[in-house]
């Protein structure tokens, strides 16, 4: 039990710094709901129904801009397509989990949780589950609260702080800690380089292209090393 509690605490401690840059983002989403002239409750519900900031903002902005419903929905889903990669990547880890958690866990599978559990892997299934739930629940509690705050008071964090830049900083930090082998280094560098080359592709599809290229490159290097 005491082990569990320290793992849970670690999950929360690791998640909170990742939440800091999400604050201005959540506030902006709250403001976007107001500006889009959406039903505030429907807009706010996106924070726990969709639970993915970029797709929420895409959907809200498009709905407010008078885009056809089907087009807004499909664009938001394309923005979220990266979650398919998270799902496949975590499948081996979830095979060692109880069935209830295989259904509940994916609901909390946001970018930050994926980043934490893949870059700081817990081998023990119980510790993995506790850590995952603690990190995911932290966001699940705080994210809808911040979006609600944005609805009520607007973006109170000044733009000039560029607090959102903390997200790539923290992801770089996790990469530095979690990237240990040469194939992983190649996967990361290729992923970044290809995403950069195709950055003009719409709706974050460049992210998908870059990621697949990175995985392919990492796998090839691994193959070559094995001879």
């Amino acid at each position: 039990m005491s082990v569990d509690r320290s793992v849970a605490r670690q999950g929360i401690t690791d998640a909170l710094p990742l939440f800091v840059p999400a604050i201005p983002f959540g506030l902006v989403i709250g403001l976007a709901i107001t500006e889009a002239g959406m039903n505030p409750l429907a807009g706010w519900s996106s924070s726990w129904l969709i639970f993915a900031g970029a797709a929420q903002l895409t959907l809200i902005t498009l709905l407010g801009g008078g885009v056809a419903l089907a087009a807004a929905i499909s664009t938001a889903l394309v923005v979220n397509a990266r979650h398919l990669m998270y799902s496949v990547a975590l499948t081996p880890a979830f095979q060692r989990q109880p069935r209830w958690f295989r259904w509940l866990g994916p609901y909390l599978l946001i970018d930050q949780v994926f980043a934490l559990v893949t870059m700081r892997p817990e081998e023990d299934p119980d510790r993995f589950r506790t850590y995952y739930l603690a990190a995911g629940a932290t966001f699940w509690v705080l994210w809808p609260a911040v979006v609600a705050l944005g609805l009520l008071i607007g973006p109170v964090v000044p733009d000039e702080w560029n607090l959102g830049f903390a997200i790539p900083i923290l992801f770089i930090g996790l990469l530095v800690v979690g990237t240990e082998t040469w194939p992983e280094v190649v996967a990361a560098l290729t992923g970044a380089a290809v995403t950069y080359l195709v950055a003009s592709l719409p709706n974050r599809t460049g992210l998908l292209v870059g990621s697949v290229a990175g995985v392919t490159a990492g796998t090839i290097v691994e193959r070559l090393r094995r001879g």
Binding site: P92, A115, A187, S211
Partner: peptide
């Protein structure tokens, strides 16, 4: 497939960093 899956984390995170700067 298991081998390939090991590289999803590094590849996606690096790609996300670039996406966030776009």
């Amino acid at each position: 497939v298991l081998i390939a899956l090991r590289y999803v984390g590094s590849a996606v995170l690096a790609a996300l960093v670039v996406t966030l700067l776009t």
